[in-house]
Design a protein around this nucleic acid. Structure first.
Lengths: 250, 250
DNA sequence: TTAGCTTACTGGTCTGACCAAGATCAGACC
DNA sequence: GGTCTGATCTTGGTCAGACCAGTAAGCTAA
């Protein structure tokens, strides 16, 4: 990351952006700090205000900074919602990316469940149990059911007590809400899937309770694999076969 | 996502941004398309050019669009490298997050190696072999050694042929370069670690070659665990014990 | 037909200005 | 003396118009 030559060769916007990035990365600008005014920044760096605003706006969409009307620009604690924006755009134009993101989600969640086995506390267990119960209660509703499914998986990641994993997971999970819903709609059409959903999640829950990372990881991984299988077969309208296969493999 | 009311109530920037987002998400603006000029956009939406530029710049940092000097603004294929920027900023301000980031890296890499076992092609194998050899060659050099280590791990992720995983990994790996270097400096001080480094990486390589996801994952995971152990013990100056323990556990 | 020149258009930037509203502080009032 | 209030300063939000520097297309001349 070459920030040294930022002072002269850059193109105005780059100059301001690099200037701010430097302070941000070096830590001299911390969350909560208020930046100097746009005008000051402009004269300080020898550029015009519109350019400064471009840079500030850029930092804003990156979630690094927040421009408060008539107050000033303050450094914020980086927020995940940026990733959501990005993924929304990215997926809109590249449907094939969905599978890729799913892989990342599996990665995050499997690691998270391992950590959860080590770090989960009573409150985490309770949340897991609550969301697990919710899955059972809402098994017949497409919307609520999808939400419950999502909440359960999120609880796993939260129980890992890893902020990075949580952040990554929530940004991807948002995108995958649709697939959750789709799966849930399948459930309505094929009641025999209910057992799979409930039992699978319960097995995952039990592995965490047992604080067995290996089993938890493996169970969760299998859960995803089966979900994949479901979706794949559903496309070719061959659901019964899937159900047979999955129950046989247990 | 409420885009409908975008036409009037918005604040200039929001108006332009929403206008473009709408087209982007709806698909009427596809990668490769050239936007109308800034001036046209400004008059079309009833705002000034600087505002339009703010919006375009925002889309630029999101990797959605590319502003080409004296050519125009074109829609690009979403590039995941934006995440790199974000993570760089986000993680720079929370040093305590480093351990957390490491967990995410493990998550990414373990998932990647599973995919690599399925998807890796000859070129990937060759790159892995090349970087593995490099680790052996540079075992006595702190700088080059750390780089070789990094390259090997990166090769694993690249072999997964998952762009999302690759980007996530590189964003985190960059931050963790220091710890790599530190480890390497330890190697200089304790030559007996050389065997661990070389053998461990070779075992990982072999598991990928064998296309055995479970073994690859487990081996890689153990590799990280041992690295962790090394660093922990190093802090309390108890390296010999570590070496004994790790060789005994095999 | 083609080489070369002209010109319209593009992004990149600056200047200076105006508005609305939060922040601040002095002075008036209790 | 302490509190309230209003003028003023400052801040972001925005605009209009202008200039530069190249690019690309259109036109002219060979």
């Amino acid at each position: 990351m070459e920030l040294k030559r930022a002072a002269e060769g850059e193109k105005g916007f780059e100059k301001v952006f690099a200037f701010l990035r430097e302070r941000l990365l070096a830590g001299s600008l911390k969350p909560g700090d208020r930046l100097i005014s746009e005008r000051e920044l402009a004269t300080l760096l020898g550029v015009s205000r519109p350019i400064v605003r471009e840079a500030l706006r850029a930092l804003t969409v990156l979630g690094i900074v927040e421009i408060r009307d008539r107050i000033g620009t303050v450094v914020t604690r980086p927020d995940v919602s940026v990733l959501n924006d990005f993924f929304t755009f990215a997926l809109a134009q590249q449907a094939d990316m969905l599978d890729d993101v799913m892989q990342a989600r599996v990665a995050i969640e499997c690691q998270a469940i391992r950590l959860a086995c080590e770090r989960a506390n009573i409150a985490d267990f309770e949340r897991l149990q609550r969301t697990l119960a919710k899955i059972g209660e809402t098994i017949d509703e497409a919307d609520a059911g999808g939400m419950a499914d999502f909440e359960f998986h999120r609880s796993i990641v939260v129980a890992s007590h890893s902020e990075t994993l949580t952040v990554l997971h929530s940004s991807m999970a948002g995108l995958l809400t649709h697939s959750h819903r789709n799966r849930r709609e399948l459930v309505q059409a094929f009641p025999s899937m209910k057992t799979y959903l409930i039992d699978d999640h319960r097995r995952i829950f039990e592995a965490v309770i047992a604080r067995d990372p290996e089993r938890a990881d493996a169970t969760l991984r299998k859960h995803f694999a089966i979900g994949d299988e479901f979706r794949r077969r559903a496309v070719v309208g061959d659901l019964d076969k899937t159900l047979d296969k999955t129950s046989a493999s247990r």
